[in-house]
């Protein structure tokens, strides 16, 4: 397989079962370069499970994932990042007793080549490499306005800032595909506004393709090019946001079926 003719990411017939619980049932979708894709769906629909399959934390029972024309399921978990996929987690998985700067520098891990002896001797090439990788990291700190948190331990930062540090760490990897798991969770209205702008800037200025799992419909509908709706591990709709908003099946999954005995759930 080569890169020609393939979308950036193609997921085909992805299925995964945990014991008796079906997490994913034949999910297929593709992500084109330079787009923002949102995966939405009720709790337990299998959204994060897709991310975990792409990160190779879970091994799907069936189906395949093709990234840039290569079979992603042949990668070992740590190789996914080096191939150009970065992710964040639903609950920030940060290195709490490292500073913001160190967290972001860890994002450069794949790009740094220094060996054990060079590092221990702090050889000129080790120093040069370290300095070279400082620059993109400092640019990201400025981009996400994290200057005041730069030298603080992440454990001491407020929740919203920690989510940004995690986003910054993923960006430091210079990925081609960025997976964001509920980026706006725990953020206030103002932070959400900033986040929307940033995700759009990440696409427009950095040229990074983004896929996000998100619950906040204002975020999803405003920034997505494509929305994928999952329910009980199955795709129930794919399309541009305006189409999804009026899709009968989506409304049923979110609001309950109209013919159900309890009647439609009233969400104000």
């Amino acid at each position: 397989m080569n890169e020609d003719g393939w979308p950036l990411l193609q997921v085909e017939d992805l299925s995964l079962q945990f014991g008796g619980v079906v997490a994913l049932k034949g999910v297929s979708f593709s992500i084109e370069r330079g787009t923002i894709t949102s995966i939405i769906g009720p709790n337990g629909a299998g959204k994060t499970t897709i991310f975990n399959c792409i990160s190779r934390l879970y091994r799907p029972d069936r189906g395949r994932i093709v990234f840039k024309g290569q079979d992603l399921l042949t990668f070992r978990p740590h190789q996914v990042a080096a191939h150009g996929i970065a992710r964040t987690f639903q609950n920030p998985e940060l290195f709490s007793r490292m500073t913001t700067l160190e967290n972001l520098l860890l994002g450069r891990h794949c790009h740094m080549k220094i060996g054990l002896l060079g590092a221990a001797a702090s050889s000129p090439s080790a120093v040069r490499e370290e300095l070279r990788h400082r620059e993109p990291v400092e640019r990201i700190i400025a981009f996400l306005e994290l200057q005041s948190a730069r030298d603080q331990l992440v454990a001491a930062l407020p929740y919203g800032t920690r989510k940004l540090v995690e986003l910054g760490r993923a960006l430091a990897l210079e990925p081609e595909l960025l997976l964001l798991d509920e980026p706006s969770a725990g953020m206030n209205a103002e932070e959400k506004q900033d986040l929307k702008l940033w995700i759009q800037n990440i696409r427009d200025e950095l040229g990074i393709t983004t896929c996000l799992v998100e619950h906040d419909m204002s975020v999803v509908m405003e920034i997505s090019d494509t929305v994928l709706v999952l329910s009980n591990g199955e795709t129930i709709a794919v399309g541009p946001p305006e189409e999804i908003q009026t899709n009968a099946e989506v409304l049923a999954a979110y609001l309950g079926k109209e013919d159900a005995s309890t009647g439609p759930i009233n969400v104000a």
């Binding site: 740590h78 860890l106 994002g107």
Partner: peptide
Amino acid sequence: KSKIGRAFVAIRESEVAALAMGV
């Protein structure tokens, strides 16, 4: 202070995040 030391600390702090960052 090098890439290697940061990877060590990253493993201590969160294995899953270290893995996702390519460690």
